[in-house]
Design a protein around this nucleic acid. Structure first.
Lengths: 318, 318
DNA sequence: TGGCGTTGAGAAAAGCTTTTCTCAAGAAAA
DNA sequence: TTTTCTTGAGAAAAGCTTTTCTCAACGCCA
C-alpha cells in the first residue's frame, strides 16, 4: 500500500475503491495513526495555533477573553499560546518572536484597559493581528466592550427602580472607560451630582461614602460604581453606617467579577462586559483572517449586559 | 551558495572559512531570515511547545503556576498552550488530542486542588507529563505545596506574637489540604479548641466568628484561617463586632491571594504557597524529561512562606 | 612530480503529508 | 480484435532544515 493512497483514503480525496478506503481507515484507527501536524503545517502554511498576548498578570480581563477564544476555536482544532508579557517590551519581543518562529496562524492582543497599547510592535507582522480589550493599531480590527451602553444600562436600571439621587463613584478619569461611563451617566442624570473620580481600590469606595454621607444635604438613594471592587467597598461602608442596601440605597457595580460580586453582602447587581463573547468574536475573526477571508477593519463594540443580583432591590426575575 | 552551507554557517557547525560564515550571517540578518520551527521540529522531534492543562476556570491557582512555567521556559524558546478544560472529560480529550497532534514536548497538568485528578487520562501518552497542584498518576512527577509546613509557619508566627488561644476556621474537611493544615495546627496547639470546618466562602467566615463570639467563655486571641477569603470575612466580622485586628485578635490567612489579602482592612498576613516557584520547577522538569534526561518520579513538596502584612501585628520588618 | 592529508563547499537524505502526474489494467465501444 | 475510456493505485515533488557523505582543490612532503 503506498503512502499516497493511504493519505487520500484518510482525507476522502482522490479516487479509489470504497473497500480500499475502508480498509485503510480501519488500519489507521487500529494503529492509532495521527497525522503529524508539523508536516501538514509545513505544507499548508496553517499550524492551527494562535498566540494570545497580554499584559494582564492577574488574568482579570484576559482569562474570560481567553475562555471565549478557546471555546470558539477548539472545534476548529486550534490551540492557543498564552503569553503574559507584563509591561516589558523586551519580554514582549521575545514572546512575539517565539510565536512567529512557530508560525502561528494569527495573534490576538489583549490587555487590562482599552486605551493602552501593549509594549510591542505588532505592525507589519507576517500574520494577522486582532485586538481585544486593548488599543489597536490604526486600520486594525479591534474589539471592545461598549462602556457607554453599559453605563446607560446601569443607570436606567436604577432609574427604573425609582431612584433619583444617583451618585457615581468611579476610577481615575485618565481611563477612557471611566470617561465614557461618566458621560453616559451625565447624559441620563444631568449635572445635579458630581462624578467622583478616585482609584480602583476598596479604600476609595470607603472614602467616597464617607464624603457623601458627611456632606450636608440630601443623601443619594443609589450609587453607580465604576467597578465591583469599589462597589463592594461602598456596600460595606454603607452597612457600617447603618444604611441598608438595597432598601435605603441601591448599589450597582461594573465588571461582574464573580469573585467579588457574588461574595459581597448582598451580592452585587453589576454590568457584565461580555468578555467571553468578545474573545469568541476575536477568535473567529483572527481565524477568518488566517484563512484569507477579508475582514473590515475598525473598532467593534460589543454590548454589555446587566447581571441582576440583590444590591439594587427590584425583582431579579425581570 | 548552497543551502547546506548556509545552514552550517548559521548554526556554527561544519567547517568553512570564517569569511564565508560571516557573509552568510550578514545576509541572513539582512533579509530577516527566520528558520522555520516546523521544519526543525519535524526533523528533531522537538517543537519547543508544551501544553498546560487545567480545570481552574478563574485561574486562581493556575495563573501563578503558568507565570512560573513561562518564566522558566521562555528563555529556552518554549511557548505554552493553555488549555482550560473545566471538568469536562470530552473537552479534556479534545484538548489533549490537539496537543498531541501538535507534538508538544510535554504536558503539565494543573488544577484547583491537590487531591483531585483532571478528568482526562494522561497515562501512556507519547510525551512526558508532569503534575503541578493536582493529583498525579502513580509513578509520575508531582509538585505541590507543603500545606503542613505552611500551617506550621502560620501558627508558630501567631505563637511567636504571644497568642495562645488560636482558633482555626477552615474549609471542608474533604480537602486533603484542609486536613493537612488542621493536623499541623493540632500538633502545635493541642486539643483545646475545635477545628471549625465550613465552606470556602466569606459567609462561613462571618458565621464562624458569630459562633466563636456568641459562645460562652474566653474568646480566641488569634484566628488561623484556611484561606484568604475566609480570613477577610473574619476580619470584617470582627471589626463589625468592635473587636480590633490586630490589637485584640491576630488573623492569618492562606494563599496570599493579592486581590483579597491586600484589600482587606487591615491587609492580611498570609501563607504564600509559592505557586510561581512550583510552576518554574514543573516547567524545568518537563523540559528535562523532553530532553531525555531522567527524573526521579514522586511527589515533591515545595515549602510555603509567610507574607507579613498587618493583620497579626508584629513587626513586618522581622 | 606523485601521493597524501586537509580544508571548504556542495549533494543528498531524512523527517511526514498532501497533491499532482503518470501509468497499468480492465471494461466498454467500434 | 483493436481502440478508447475509466478507474484505481503508485511515483514524485514540494514544503524547510539539519546532518552526513562525497568531492574537488590545494598545499605539503617525499
Amino acid at each position: 500500500m503506498s503512502i499516497s493512497t493511504a493519505s487520500k483514503a484518510l482525507n476522502n480525496t482522490g479516487r479509489m475503491g470504497d473497500e480500499t478506503r475502508e480498509r485503510v481507515k480501519r488500519a489507521a484507527a487500529e494503529i492509532g495513526f495521527r497525522p503529524n501536524a508539523l508536516a501538514k503545517g509545513l505544507l499548508s502554511n496553517r499550524t492551527f495555533t494562535i498566540g494570545l498576548l497580554t499584559n494582564d498578570t492577574y488574568g482579570r480581563f484576559t482569562l474570560p477573553v481567553m475562555a471565549g477564544i478557546t471555546e470558539a476555536l477548539v472545534d476548529h482544532g486550534v490551540s492557543v499560546f498564552l503569553c503574559t508579557i507584563e509591561d516589558d517590551p523586551v519580554l514582549g519581543k521575545v514572546h512575539v518572536d517565539a510565536l512567529l518562529d512557530k508560525h502561528v496562524d494569527g495573534i490576538i492582543a489583549s490587555g487590562k484597559r482599552i486605551d493602552r497599547r501593549l509594549p510591542v510592535d505588532l505592525s507589519n507582522l507576517p500574520v494577522p493581528v486582532v485586538y481585544a480589550f486593548t488599543e489597536g493599531a490604526p486600520d486594525s480590527v479591534t474589539f471592545c466592550a461598549d462602556d457607554f451602553q453599559g453605563a446607560v444600562l446601569a443607570v436606567e436600571w436604577l432609574q427604573g427602580l425609582g431612584r433619583r439621587q444617583i451618585a457615581h463613584v468611579t476610577g481615575p478619569d485618565s481611563f477612557v472607560s471611566v470617561r465614557e461611563r461618566a458621560k453616559a451617566y451625565r447624559g441620563l442624570i444631568g449635572d445635579a451630582l458630581p462624578v467622583m473620580y478616585g482609584t480602583w481600590s476598596e479604600a476609595w469606595g470607603h472614602e467616597a461614602v464617607a464624603q457623601l454621607w458627611n456632606a450636608a444635604g440630601a443623601k443619594p438613594d443609589a450609587i453607580f460604581c465604576g467597578n465591583d471592587q469599589i462597589a463592594r467597598a461602598v456596600v460595606d461602608a454603607l452597612r457600617e453606617r447603618g444604611v441598608r442596601v438595597p432598601e435605603d440605597v441601591s448599589v450597582v457595580g461594573f465588571d461582574n467579577w464573580e469573585i467579588v460580586a457574588a461574595q459581597t453582602r448582598p451580592p452585587l447587581t453589576t454590568v457584565d462586559m461580555n468578555l467571553k463573547a468578545l474573545g469568541r468574536e476575536a477568535g473567529l475573526t483572527v481565524l477568518a483572517l488566517a484563512e484569507g477571508r477579508s475582514v473590515e477593519p475598525g473598532i467593534r463594540t460589543l454590548p454589555c449586559e446587566l447581571v441582576v443580583r440583590q444590591s439594587c432591590g427590584g425583582d431579579p426575575e425581570l
